[in-house]
Amino acid sequence: TLLLGAEPEKVCAMPDPALPDSDIKALTTLCDLADRELVLNISWAKNIPGFSSLCLSDQMSLLQSAWMEILVLRVAFRSLPCEDKLVFADDYIMDAEQAKSAGLLELHKAILQLVSRYRSMRLEKEEFVTLKAIALANSDSMHIEDVEAVQGLQDSLHEALLDYECVHHREDPRRAGKLIMTLPLLRQTSAKAVRHFCSIKQDGRVPMHKLFLELLEANV
């Protein structure tokens, strides 16, 4: 219940109507959207029960490792009702053709693979919010100071998922495990996204906001 209540509000992409359509415009829109979502995701993390009790440096390490996984998982969940399209925002839905012109076809395909995995499982909102918190707590940062405290957070979120499945999916005792088993694909997809946006950053043609840049640099 707390995780459902912590969910951030929706964000609109609002592509600049003054700019002509181009790959740069699409990427600028996405980077701006990501930056605004990141601010919300940091507030969200602070509302995960137990997260704010971690020391500040461990909170930073978890977010520095998992920020893109959180963004990708949110896009994947929003895209569940849309066949073959990614819902970056309600006003920014991208099909393969648009992804191709933005140079994002490979990433588009990778995220859609994740979407189809969750669609086939009929991922529910309660599972999505819990899985997202697990992805954050389980981000495998190499810089954790209080390993036991982070383990405690992982355990309590894992327990929440098991409790939910026990009540709502008695018919499939392996459902929690199946959900956890999607996390490697999420990590792989997120790593792909980070690599792609790092190369866009090096190109220097797309303006990026400071928080997005700061976190991209954390993953290099």
């Binding site: 940091i42 602070k46 930073m60 977010l63 520095q64 700061e214 976190l215 640099e217």
Partner: peptide, 15 residues
């Protein structure tokens, strides 16, 4: 951690 000023600030400040 020095380099991550914005993240640090956002975590320290209120929601």
């Amino acid at each position: 951690q020095e380099k991550h000023k914005i993240l640090h600030k956002l975590l320290q400040n209120g929601n």
